[in-house]
Amino acid sequence: MSTNTMKLSLGPVLFNWPNDIWSDFYARVADEMPVERVYIGEVVCSKREPFREQAMGEAVERLQRAGKEVVLSTLALVTLPRERHRVVATAEDWTGLVEANDITAVSALAGRPFAVGPLVNVYNEGTMRTLAGYGAKTVCLPPELPLTSIAVIAKAAAPLGVDTELFAFGRVPLAVSARCYHARVHGLHKDSCQFVCAQDLDGLAVDTLDGERFLAVNGIQTMSQTYANLLADVPALAAAGVTALRLSPHACDMVAVAKLFREVADGARDGAEATTALQGLIGDAPMSNGFLHAIPGARYQLRAQA
């Protein structure tokens, strides 16, 4: 099956990477990464934002010069006045698409074209239509949706001119909290966290007491310890009407990751075979695609069960 209309997007960096690593990463995205769209901006913690401002401006400019569509991402959990102002200001200042990761941003963006991120609950065709009515042009669906739901929602989205994107690579965002787990684990308070989250470029692993690899913490966010990998599912996703795949940045060679997804999406490479190559890029990290197959999200299943 040809899947050559499938677009690739790079999600926002969810981790607190030091500025030099962060800037080098986006330089490489601009120069080398085969993705059409780049989401950029702080999603997890507003305390990280001030340190990124200058680097952010430079990265956006470089990405645009390279021909990427730049979408500004906004915070997932908005409670403080300065966080609300930041969301509203981003919506007002940016002429391109802004990605809502909370209803706060949907409220600020309603009436103009905007993007909906995977942290907004879009579980059905009714909600897809409601958001399209507000101006949503592209919706990245919640990672826990099974393929059956994705197909129904994508079918409703297509005639409305809305792109259906799916989280296809990287540790899966599973929860947000008012509490910072990075600070808690280090015996610190959220207000005096010393930015300990910057020590873990891919998040901090959480195992069970029996040594099972389970979750990862990233500031106020809890993620899967597994890396989502939907390479082998690309033909099924295309058939279901998914129009874009989101790759979530990690410290591994993301250009190589994107090339694998590009080759599989173009039908130039088999997804199962590419999965072996992907494993080589992420070391011993476990993979998952269980949500898609309506089994525990932590599992990986190569083929849909009959």
Partner: peptide
């Protein structure tokens, strides 16, 4: 709940049964 309610996929990740769905 220690997580923002309605925005937590932890149980679903471990069991396949989603609180949201």
């Amino acid at each position: 709940c220690v997580m923002a309610e309605g925005r937590c996929l932890l149980s679903s990740y471990a069991t396949g049964k989603s609180p949201n769905m």
